[in-house]
């Protein structure tokens, strides 16, 4: 990858994060959504029938997925006002740099929400913190990369349709299945105190998904923003 692609991507990511840092609209709404969902999920099941600990991995991954979607919607939504996207496209940078920059900003956004939501789940669901927890964090990062790779691409498509943000979940969720399923299964196995090796097969699925879809989405992205 040429060095100016990376520096352009970093500049775009910095721009998006600066906008988000100054307004905090998407971050706060994702975060409040995540915390609310943690609370609502707790009351959606009978705690005497299913221990909270058994619910925790599922709750965690449902929340990560949906709060991620809230943030991803904004990624290209902010470029719609005043046709800012045209300025971005006119800039002498490659389309891959735009995708990488947008993706990087989204990744940091999703990781920031996870960094608060994960301890919140641990707190509210009385999850014992053990050595396996470092692996759960690694799973979260791997899964976030996959979610963001898909979500960034689809966000650039969804904003140009009549359905706008309504379309993003419909397009993205089927693609999130091979992320959420391995991530939740691996998390459940680790939280139950089973050895890391048991989660390894699921981690491989996640890693393969990340490699294939980061590459495929980066290649496909230029086709979604042609003028």
């Amino acid at each position: 990858m040429p060095p100016d692609t990376i520096s352009a991507a970093l500049a775009i990511a910095r721009k998006d994060l600066a906008i988000e840092f100054r307004t905090r609209t998407a971050f706060l709404s994702s975060l409040v959504f995540a915390l609310l969902a943690i609370v609502i999920f707790y009351f959606a099941w009978d705690p005497t029938a299913i221990p909270a600990l058994d619910l925790a991995p599922g709750v965690l991954w449902v929340i990560f997925t949906f709060s991620g979607l809230l943030g991803l919607n904004r990624s290209f939504g902010i470029e719609q006002s005043e046709r800012a996207i045209d300025g971005l496209l006119l800039a002498p940078v490659s389309r891959q740099a735009i995708y990488l920059g947008k993706g990087l900003a989204n990744l940091l956004f999703v990781l920031a929400v996870q960094a608060i939501a994960l301890p919140a789940v641990v707190l509210f669901y009385n999850v014992p913190v053990s050595g396996g927890f470092a692996v759960v964090a690694a799973i979260a990062v791997l899964a976030a990369i996959g979610l963001v790779a898909i979500g960034t691409l689809f966000s650039s498509m969804a904003v140009n349709t009549r359905l706008a943000e309504l379309l993003l979940p419909m397009l993205s969720l089927p693609f999130f299945v091979p992320i959420v399923m391995p991530a939740a299964q691996a998390t459940a196995s680790l939280l139950a105190g089973r050895p890391v090796a048991e989660a390894a097969a699921w981690l491989k699925v996640l890693l393969a998904f990340d490699i294939v879809f980061v590459a495929a989405c980066a290649l496909a992205f230029p086709y979604t923003i042609e003028e």
């Binding site: 498509m157 140009n160 009549r162 089927p174 091979p178 699925v205 998904f209 495929a216 086709y223 979604t224």
Partner: peptide, 29 residues
């Protein structure tokens, strides 16, 4: 949900290809 015919064709093609890539992953998981 897309009116412009060229945009619709490009978006659909991207989705058609990614959908095919997704199938082995769903199958595996």
């Amino acid at each position: 949900a897309v009116d412009d015919r060229a945009v619709r064709a490009r978006y659909s093609a991207v989705l058609g290809i990614l959908g095919a890539l997704l199938i082995p992953f769903i199958h595996l998981s």
